[in-house]
Amino acid sequence: MQKALVSIAVAASLGLGATAAQAAILDDVKAKGYVQCGVTGGVPGFSAPDSNNVWTGIEVDFCRAMAAAIFNDADAVRFTSLTSQERFTALSAGEVDVLSRTTTWTMSRDTQLGISFVGTMFYDGQGFMVRKDDGIESALDLSGAAICIESGTTTELNAADYFAANGMEFNTVVFVDQDEVVKAYEDGRCDVYTTDSSALAAERSKFANPDDHIILPEVISKEPLGPVVRAGDTQWFNIARWTYFALLEAEELGVSSANVDEQLGSDNPAIKRLLGVEGEFGAPLGLDNAWAYQIIKHVGNYAETYERNVGPSTPIGLERGLNALWKDGGIQYSPPIR
């Protein structure tokens, strides 16, 4: 009996060992020839089909950047739409290799779900939108104003906290569906509409007269949105993380998809290291030494993907704000590549 138990235990541990060994995601990805990327069903600017029905968005670009780093081909990526309920299961079960799906980085998710957050692709936070005519300039003026809000969300809790903390009267008009909330605000049933600022901007872009509405400067919650990978595969985690950092580093060094080829001849040692002219930074990731060059060549740097997908010139029209580089007053910051 004892013997049988021991052998079962041995077999089990061998089995576990086998799974751990086969969990080298990079090898699997290289073998199948593409990165499987989990995205939303369609959030404009983040991951959504464009008019040619090709996936676009800042989160989609992250997956394309990983594909570029691994395969030197930004199209070696397949997208799976995931709902918010199934996203973490799909990631842990290996249905997707990386999850890039407006996922807020929280402690419980990072520590309890067997997943690792790579970084913050986009710093989001809850904001308020009001009509310009109302003359409101700060969220602190909102005491007693009717606020359109989606029920059962962290949005509602955050707003309640904020109003309580500032001793203001909290007066809500609650709906179950995001579309209803927007409609009610548009119809004038309330004075204020609150949700994540990126969503506020996206919704505003759909209004008949977007300029009649302003988004107040206060951001009352932290919603860092970032890509996620399965925990336990350090190499894969590093590839994802340094893909993100390479996007930032390239912007900081002024390397873009337009000038990356001439920058190959740059004298700046930091650019040389980034582009793989000098040093051996690809091998530890299991990638070609030109991994970052490939990312920049095919996808561009962080500024390019931001401007292309959510920046002021797009219908989403979001200023860089917190998402500017550290030296431009934001908090996007890459450790040095050296």
Partner: peptide
């Protein structure tokens, strides 16, 4: 099947309703 992230006809319409910003109107 939209709840398991698949895109049938109705979900395709919903996706485009959200994503096709260039077609936004009342």
């Amino acid at each position: 099947v939209y709840i398991v992230g698949m895109r049938d006809l109705l979900e395709a319409v919903k996706t485009k309703n959200d994503a096709a910003i260039e077609w936004q109107s009342a």
